[in-house]
Protein backbone atom coordinates (compact mmCIF):
# COMPACT_ATOMS: atom_id res chain seq x y z
CA UNK A 1 0.00 0.00 0.00
CA UNK A 2 2.65 2.51 1.04
CA UNK A 3 5.28 3.50 -1.39
CA UNK A 4 8.86 2.77 -0.47
CA UNK A 5 9.94 6.32 0.27
CA UNK A 6 7.07 7.04 2.62
CA UNK A 7 7.94 8.01 6.14
CA UNK A 8 5.96 6.90 9.13
CA UNK A 9 4.56 10.37 9.68
CA UNK A 10 3.33 10.85 6.17
CA UNK A 11 2.33 7.65 4.48
CA UNK A 12 1.60 8.00 0.81
CA UNK A 13 -1.38 6.25 -0.62
CA UNK A 14 -0.58 4.27 -3.72
CA UNK A 15 -2.08 5.60 -6.89
CA UNK A 16 -3.60 3.60 -9.68
CA UNK A 17 -2.80 3.88 -13.30
CA UNK A 18 -5.91 3.73 -15.44
CA UNK A 19 -6.84 0.07 -15.47
CA UNK A 20 -8.65 -0.20 -18.74
CA UNK A 21 -11.37 -2.75 -18.28
CA UNK A 22 -13.56 -1.12 -20.89
CA UNK A 23 -15.24 -4.44 -21.68
CA UNK A 24 -16.21 -4.88 -18.05
CA UNK A 25 -17.59 -1.35 -17.89
CA UNK A 26 -19.51 -1.77 -21.15
CA UNK A 27 -21.04 -5.07 -20.10
CA UNK A 28 -22.06 -3.64 -16.76
CA UNK A 29 -23.62 -0.56 -18.37
CA UNK A 30 -25.57 -2.69 -20.85
CA UNK A 31 -26.76 -4.95 -18.07
CA UNK A 32 -27.66 -2.05 -15.81
CA UNK A 33 -29.70 -0.22 -18.42
CA UNK A 34 -31.46 -3.38 -19.55
CA UNK A 35 -32.35 -4.24 -15.96
CA UNK A 36 -33.62 -0.73 -15.32
CA UNK A 37 -35.73 -0.63 -18.46
CA UNK A 38 -37.19 -4.08 -17.89
CA UNK A 39 -38.21 -2.99 -14.39
CA UNK A 40 -40.04 -0.02 -15.89
CA UNK A 41 -42.04 -1.93 -18.47
CA UNK A 42 -44.52 0.89 -18.95
CA UNK A 43 -41.81 3.09 -20.36
CA UNK A 44 -40.71 0.37 -22.76
CA UNK A 45 -44.28 -0.28 -23.90
CA UNK A 46 -45.14 3.41 -24.39
CA UNK A 47 -43.66 3.86 -27.88
CA UNK A 48 -45.05 0.50 -29.01
CA UNK A 49 -48.55 1.38 -27.85
CA UNK A 50 -48.25 4.79 -29.52
CA UNK A 51 -47.18 3.11 -32.76
CA UNK A 52 -50.09 0.66 -32.67
CA UNK A 53 -52.65 3.36 -31.82
CA UNK A 54 -51.58 5.72 -34.58
CA UNK A 55 -51.62 2.98 -37.21
CA UNK A 56 -55.01 1.72 -35.99
CA UNK A 57 -56.52 5.18 -36.37
CA UNK A 58 -55.52 5.70 -40.00
CA UNK A 59 -57.91 3.19 -41.62
CA UNK A 60 -60.69 4.64 -39.47
CA UNK A 61 -59.83 8.24 -40.23
CA UNK A 62 -58.98 7.99 -43.93
CA UNK A 63 -60.78 5.14 -45.56
CA UNK A 64 -60.87 1.37 -45.23
CA UNK A 65 -60.21 1.07 -48.97
CA UNK A 66 -57.35 -1.46 -49.22
CA UNK A 67 -55.88 0.02 -52.38
CA UNK A 68 -55.67 3.52 -50.98
CA UNK A 69 -54.23 2.26 -47.69
CA UNK A 70 -51.68 0.07 -49.44
CA UNK A 71 -50.43 3.06 -51.41
CA UNK A 72 -49.73 5.13 -48.33
CA UNK A 73 -48.86 2.29 -45.93
CA UNK A 74 -45.03 2.44 -46.27
CA UNK A 75 -44.93 6.13 -45.46
CA UNK A 76 -47.46 5.86 -42.65
CA UNK A 77 -45.67 2.99 -40.98
CA UNK A 78 -42.33 4.70 -41.22
CA UNK A 79 -43.56 8.07 -39.98
CA UNK A 80 -45.41 6.50 -37.06
CA UNK A 81 -42.38 4.39 -36.10
CA UNK A 82 -40.11 7.43 -36.35
CA UNK A 83 -42.36 9.48 -34.08
CA UNK A 84 -42.65 6.58 -31.63
CA UNK A 85 -38.86 6.35 -31.46
CA UNK A 86 -38.62 10.12 -31.01
CA UNK A 87 -41.15 9.98 -28.18
CA UNK A 88 -38.96 7.68 -26.15
CA UNK A 89 -35.73 9.64 -26.63
CA UNK A 90 -36.28 12.33 -24.04
CA UNK A 91 -35.90 9.86 -21.18
CA UNK A 92 -32.64 8.39 -22.53
CA UNK A 93 -30.32 10.38 -20.25
CA UNK A 94 -32.85 12.23 -18.12
CA UNK A 95 -33.11 9.90 -15.13
CA UNK A 96 -29.32 9.53 -15.05
CA UNK A 97 -29.02 13.29 -15.07
CA UNK A 98 -31.51 13.75 -12.27
CA UNK A 99 -30.13 11.18 -9.85
CA UNK A 100 -26.48 12.11 -10.38
CA UNK A 101 -25.44 8.94 -12.22
CA UNK A 102 -24.61 10.97 -15.29
CA UNK A 103 -21.87 12.97 -13.59
CA UNK A 104 -20.48 9.68 -12.28
CA UNK A 105 -20.56 8.31 -15.83
CA UNK A 106 -18.61 11.35 -17.00
CA UNK A 107 -16.03 10.84 -14.25
CA UNK A 108 -15.49 7.17 -15.03
CA UNK A 109 -11.96 6.45 -16.23
CA UNK A 110 -13.46 5.04 -19.42
CA UNK A 111 -14.12 6.63 -22.80
CA UNK A 112 -17.47 8.37 -22.49
CA UNK A 113 -18.25 7.78 -26.16
CA UNK A 114 -18.20 4.00 -25.61
CA UNK A 115 -20.38 4.17 -22.52
CA UNK A 116 -22.83 6.43 -24.33
CA UNK A 117 -22.93 3.95 -27.20
CA UNK A 118 -23.87 1.20 -24.74
CA UNK A 119 -26.82 3.26 -23.54
CA UNK A 120 -27.93 3.90 -27.10
CA UNK A 121 -27.65 0.19 -27.88
CA UNK A 122 -30.04 -0.59 -25.05
CA UNK A 123 -32.43 2.08 -26.30
CA UNK A 124 -32.47 0.56 -29.77
CA UNK A 125 -32.84 -2.97 -28.42
CA UNK A 126 -35.93 -2.01 -26.42
CA UNK A 127 -37.45 0.56 -28.80
CA UNK A 128 -36.23 0.31 -32.39
CA UNK A 129 -36.07 -3.46 -32.63
CA UNK A 130 -39.54 -4.08 -31.12
CA UNK A 131 -40.96 -1.38 -33.43
CA UNK A 132 -39.39 -3.13 -36.41
CA UNK A 133 -40.80 -6.50 -35.34
CA UNK A 134 -44.22 -5.03 -34.72
CA UNK A 135 -44.47 -3.12 -38.00
CA UNK A 136 -45.39 -6.11 -40.23
CA UNK A 137 -48.33 -6.92 -37.95
CA UNK A 138 -49.57 -3.35 -38.26
CA UNK A 139 -48.86 -3.56 -41.97
CA UNK A 140 -51.60 -6.16 -42.27
CA UNK A 141 -54.01 -3.60 -40.85
CA UNK A 142 -53.05 -1.21 -43.64
CA UNK A 143 -53.30 -4.02 -46.21
CA UNK A 144 -49.64 -3.70 -47.05
CA UNK A 145 -49.03 -5.97 -50.05
CA UNK A 146 -47.46 -9.31 -49.24
CA UNK A 147 -43.78 -9.59 -50.06
CA UNK A 148 -42.83 -6.28 -48.52
CA UNK A 149 -43.06 -7.34 -44.88
CA UNK A 150 -39.48 -8.55 -44.58
CA UNK A 151 -38.17 -5.38 -46.20
CA UNK A 152 -40.33 -3.28 -43.87
CA UNK A 153 -38.96 -4.99 -40.77
CA UNK A 154 -35.39 -4.91 -42.02
CA UNK A 155 -35.48 -1.27 -43.11
CA UNK A 156 -36.97 -0.29 -39.75
CA UNK A 157 -34.42 -2.34 -37.79
CA UNK A 158 -31.51 -0.67 -39.59
CA UNK A 159 -33.17 2.73 -39.74
CA UNK A 160 -34.19 2.93 -36.10
CA UNK A 161 -30.59 2.20 -35.09
CA UNK A 162 -29.59 5.40 -36.87
CA UNK A 163 -32.57 7.18 -35.33
CA UNK A 164 -31.47 6.13 -31.85
CA UNK A 165 -27.89 7.26 -32.48
CA UNK A 166 -28.82 10.65 -33.93
CA UNK A 167 -31.59 11.16 -31.40
CA UNK A 168 -29.21 10.48 -28.54
CA UNK A 169 -27.14 13.51 -29.60
CA UNK A 170 -30.24 15.66 -29.23
CA UNK A 171 -31.20 13.98 -25.98
CA UNK A 172 -27.71 14.61 -24.61
CA UNK A 173 -27.85 18.27 -25.64
CA UNK A 174 -31.25 18.87 -24.05
CA UNK A 175 -30.88 16.74 -20.92
CA UNK A 176 -30.12 19.77 -18.75
CA UNK A 177 -33.25 21.63 -19.83
CA UNK A 178 -36.42 21.31 -17.81
CA UNK A 179 -38.66 20.97 -20.88
CA UNK A 180 -36.34 19.82 -23.59
CA UNK A 181 -38.87 17.67 -25.43
CA UNK A 182 -39.93 20.20 -28.07
CA UNK A 183 -36.40 21.43 -28.64
CA UNK A 184 -35.23 17.85 -28.97
CA UNK A 185 -37.77 17.23 -31.74
CA UNK A 186 -36.76 20.40 -33.56
CA UNK A 187 -33.08 19.50 -33.34
CA UNK A 188 -33.42 15.93 -34.40
CA UNK A 189 -36.25 15.78 -36.95
CA UNK A 190 -34.34 17.46 -39.82
CA UNK A 191 -31.61 14.86 -39.40
CA UNK A 192 -34.20 12.08 -39.49
CA UNK A 193 -35.47 13.04 -42.93
CA UNK A 194 -32.87 11.16 -45.04
CA UNK A 195 -33.51 8.01 -43.03
CA UNK A 196 -37.25 8.39 -43.49
CA UNK A 197 -36.89 8.90 -47.25
CA UNK A 198 -34.73 5.84 -47.81
CA UNK A 199 -36.58 3.67 -45.28
CA UNK A 200 -40.01 4.33 -46.72
CA UNK A 201 -38.46 4.20 -50.19
CA UNK A 202 -37.19 0.68 -49.57
CA UNK A 203 -40.68 -0.56 -48.65
CA UNK A 204 -42.21 1.30 -51.59
CA UNK A 205 -39.68 -0.29 -53.92
CA UNK A 206 -40.48 -3.73 -52.52
CA UNK A 207 -44.16 -3.17 -53.28
CA UNK A 208 -43.42 -1.99 -56.82
CA UNK A 209 -41.16 -4.95 -57.34
CA UNK A 210 -38.08 -2.76 -57.88
CA UNK A 211 -34.73 -3.57 -56.38
CA UNK A 212 -34.62 -2.75 -52.69
CA UNK A 213 -30.90 -3.22 -52.25
CA UNK A 214 -30.01 0.34 -53.21
CA UNK A 215 -32.27 1.79 -50.53
CA UNK A 216 -31.14 -0.69 -47.90
CA UNK A 217 -27.50 -0.06 -48.79
CA UNK A 218 -27.96 3.66 -48.27
CA UNK A 219 -29.71 3.00 -44.95
CA UNK A 220 -26.75 0.83 -43.97
CA UNK A 221 -24.32 3.53 -45.04
CA UNK A 222 -26.20 6.11 -42.98
CA UNK A 223 -26.02 3.76 -40.00
CA UNK A 224 -22.28 3.28 -40.51
CA UNK A 225 -21.72 7.03 -40.55
CA UNK A 226 -23.95 7.49 -37.50
CA UNK A 227 -22.09 4.74 -35.64
CA UNK A 228 -18.80 6.38 -36.40
CA UNK A 229 -19.65 9.98 -35.56
CA UNK A 230 -22.58 9.92 -33.13
CA UNK A 231 -20.75 8.46 -30.09
CA UNK A 232 -18.28 11.37 -30.11
CA UNK A 233 -21.08 13.88 -30.58
CA UNK A 234 -23.05 12.29 -27.73
CA UNK A 235 -20.04 12.44 -25.43
CA UNK A 236 -19.35 16.08 -26.29
CA UNK A 237 -23.03 16.97 -25.87
CA UNK A 238 -23.18 15.34 -22.45
CA UNK A 239 -20.12 17.34 -21.37
CA UNK A 240 -21.78 20.55 -22.56
CA UNK A 241 -25.00 19.71 -20.72
CA UNK A 242 -23.20 18.96 -17.47
CA UNK A 243 -21.29 22.24 -17.83
CA UNK A 244 -24.49 24.22 -18.06
Amino acid sequence: MHSSNATIDAPVMSMHDPKGGLVVALNATLKRDLTLMLRRRGEVLNPLVFFALVITLFPIGISPDPELLAAIAPGLLWVAALLAALLSLDSLFRSDYEDGSLEQLLLAPQPLAALGLAKVAVHWLLTGLPLALMAPVLGIMLSLPAGSYAVLALSLAVGTASLSLIGAIGAALTVGLARGGVLLSLLVLPLYIPILIFGAGAVQAAIMGDGVMAHLAILGALLAVALMLAPWAIAASLRISING
Binding site: G20, G21, A28, T29, R32, A108, Q110
Partner: peptide, 9 residues
Amino acid sequence: AWYQALSGE
Protein backbone atom coordinates in the same frame (compact mmCIF):
# COMPACT_ATOMS: atom_id res chain seq x y z
CA ALA B 1 -21.66 -3.47 -9.01
CA TRP B 2 -22.07 -0.87 -11.73
CA TYR B 3 -19.77 1.59 -10.01
CA GLN B 4 -17.14 -1.09 -9.57
CA ALA B 5 -17.40 -2.08 -13.20
CA LEU B 6 -17.07 1.54 -14.30
CA SER B 7 -13.60 1.60 -12.82
CA GLY B 8 -12.81 -1.54 -14.78
CA GLU B 9 -12.99 -4.21 -12.09
